[in-house]
Nucleic acid binder design. Structure first.
Lengths: 212, 212
DNA sequence: CGACAAATTGATGTCAGTCAAGCCTCGTGG
DNA sequence: CCACGAGGCTTGACTGACATCAATTTGTCG
């Protein structure tokens, strides 16, 4: 029996690997499947008429995306890096109680995450937002790796513009604030797509709240 | 048999009427019940350490609130006006499939609403936000009443500060933009807590996008 | 190695926040 | 019935943070 990726199953429907910058689905497409990131990074985003963009999330291993209330996707999804993605037909929700519970749990968490993001975007300075972004990535990595906080390197596979569209800033401001955090000694930037966390506590404090 | 409000049932647990400005639950409380607005207006909000506040929603007739992923409420809830509120134990989710479906549907819609709010807060001018807020209230009313768009009066039971904390603005800016929309002829303000929609299309256009 | 895209850096403008003062409304008590 | 007071709303002047525009520099991929 050949292992056609379209037919490969491991308890959550078909599995497939996509190269980076590949659209998984488009905003407005009818939603027939539910997706889960197996490896790599996927970002979801919403577009406005005038081509403005809000990135609604960066999904990594284990996270679901593509959940839609009615027929249509309210966001689009694209791989940031090469990514392994599992998917299952939406109809599986009706039969599989375990999956349903998992999705429900994920939905609640998603609401919380979205509200957290909203708080960050509306109540904090550009510096705090960039710091919060780095803290989020670092936390995510720490959850999977050991708790060696300081000295940790996190990868930033997305472009500055992607970060900007996630944080509601301009790409210039993202650049400025990153270099500001660097000159404060909180982080290092060995190369454009890597950040080194020097003082995690300081970064957290920065993310929490910062008047100026 | 006496109709103790605590024991009154109509298919969705107990019913109770609260006066205005009454807390229903507090942020951080353990979540044991799910709520549904029967009449009146309830607002949910999240607080930050330094007493900043983000209002996450104004709930009216038929809307659920108080859904929490884990044990604790991630937001607080207060009545804006006098309000009739139904509630049911969270354990009913396990037994009642219909309720579960309803809640699930609501959760998806909530994610969408929250993302929409986020778009509004991060991508639009203060004028557009205030216009969008009025459009939302008007739409909500139109869904229940006839489709006589223009001339419609919507009530603003919440304070200017509440609106500001919903839209991520200062109370002064809310005030300024409301009066601006008034002098543009799009709305009328017969009194502080009432807005009259004069040109609904214009208001929509304003809400959609506005450079200046 | 060369060309194009992305990122940085600098200069300037603008929108909304803050501070401060005045107004209007409503409830209270004389 | 009216005077007073308190809280919420409005209006104005000023400030500041981030966007925008523009020019380099750096990075990447053929």
């Amino acid at each position: 029996m050949q292992t056609d990726i379209h037919d490969a199953h491991n308890g959550f429907g078909t599995i497939r690997v996509y190269p980076d910058k590949t659209p998984i689905y488009h905003q407005g497409d009818s939603a027939t499947r539910i997706f889960r990131v197996n490896s790599g990074v996927v970002m979801t985003f919403r577009l406005l008429e005038d081509s403005r963009r809000q990135i609604t999330g960066f999904c990594t291993e284990g996270e679901f995306f593509g959940l839609s209330p009615h027929g249509d996707h309210m966001d689009g999804a694209v791989t940031v890096t090469s990514a392994g993605i599992q998917s299952v037909s939406i109809s599986a929700l009706e039969t599989d109680a375990g999956l349903r519970a998992q999705i429900m749990n994920h939905s609640f968490r998603k609401i919380e995450d979205t509200q957290n993001l909203m708080m960050t975007l509306t109540k904090t300075s550009s510096e705090a937002r960039v710091a919060a972004f780095l803290v989020m990535l670092a936390d995510r990595r720490l959850r999977r790796q050991g708790p060696n906080a300081d000295g940790l390197e996190v990868s930033l596979p997305m472009s500055r513009l992607d970060i900007a569209d996630y944080l509601g800033l301009s790409r210039e401001t993202v650049s400025r604030r990153l270099n500001e955090l660097k000159s404060l000694g909180l982080i290092g930037l060995p190369d454009t797509h890597t950040a080194q966390i020097n003082r995690f506590d300081g970064l957290r404090r920065c993310a929490g709240m910062m008047a100026a």
